[in-house]
């Protein structure tokens, strides 16, 4: 792959797509050590090669796939240690098409942390699809017979995931891509676009 090729370029995810793949951005949120990167690695396998963003300390993973019959280029944005501030830079949310929120089946404190992440997500992206994953179910199998108010009240799908065994990892990411594509093709929140237009000036 050439360094200057289209795979390496930073993308304006809102740019109307002409020829070439549809570009979408999927962001990961959740407390430290819940396994966000481990899940990414399990999904991408050999393609798990982070690029550093040119300006911000985040890890980017570019993934090419087919969704809804379209050629799709996905950028996954993963945190690179900013959890300490319990907050991400607005650029992390900018133009995102879907979000995966993760907590740890063995640590209740990470479930409690979701409310803060979700609030910040909605301040920045009021309408994008959000999916929730509880990781490490192999360490606490009991969690798979449990329900959680956070996902129920917010009408969010909950995925029971094990990054070590691979359980439901591919399902989670392919569903997230699918929802991101749906959102991009038919955004439900016109306001998002108007705001972004203003920001670009």
């Amino acid at each position: 792959m050439a360094a200057s090729g289209p795979e390496e370029r930073e993308i304006d995810y809102d740019r109307p797509t002409g020829a070439g793949p549809l570009t979408v951005k999927v962001i990961m949120l959740g407390d430290s050590a819940v396994g966000k990167s481990k899940m990414m690695e399990r999904f991408l396998l050999d393609d798990f090669k982070p690029h550093q963003h040119s300006t911000f300390a985040v890890n980017l993973f570019r993934h090419r796939c087919t969704a809804q019959g379209r050629d799709v280029l996905v950028d996954f944005w993963d945190t690179a240690g900013q959890e300490a501030f319990k907050s991400m830079h607005p650029s992390y949310y900018h133009q995102a098409h879907a979000c995966i929120l993760v907590f740890d089946a063995t640590r209740k404190v990470t479930y409690k942390g979701l409310s803060g992440w979700y609030q910040e997500l909605r301040e920045n992206r009021p309408k994008i699809p959000a999916l929730c994953a509880v990781n490490k179910i192999d360490e606490n199998p009991d969690v798979t017979s449990r329900s959680f108010n956070f996902t129920e009240k917010n009408g969010m799908p909950l995925y029971y995931v094990s990054a070590s065994k691979g359980t439901n990892v591919v399902r989670l990411f392919t569903d997230a891509i699918d929802r991101a594509v749906t959102y991009k093709l038919d955004p439900t929140d016109e306001m998002d676009h108007i705001l972004e237009e203003l920001e670009r000036d």
């Binding site: 479930y111 360490e139 969690v143 449990r146 329900s147 029971y160 070590s164 065994k165 439901n168 990892v169």
Partner: peptide
């Protein structure tokens, strides 16, 4: 616990449904 791609039992897309009756987590 990890099952790596070079192990014979590795399956890329492992799907498992947990559709049974749910009890509340007690985490709320």
């Amino acid at each position: 616990q990890v099952v790596r791609p070079d192990q014979p039992e590795f399956v890329y897309d492992v799907r498992q449904d947990f559709d049974g009756p749910k009890q509340h987590s007690g985490w709320d």
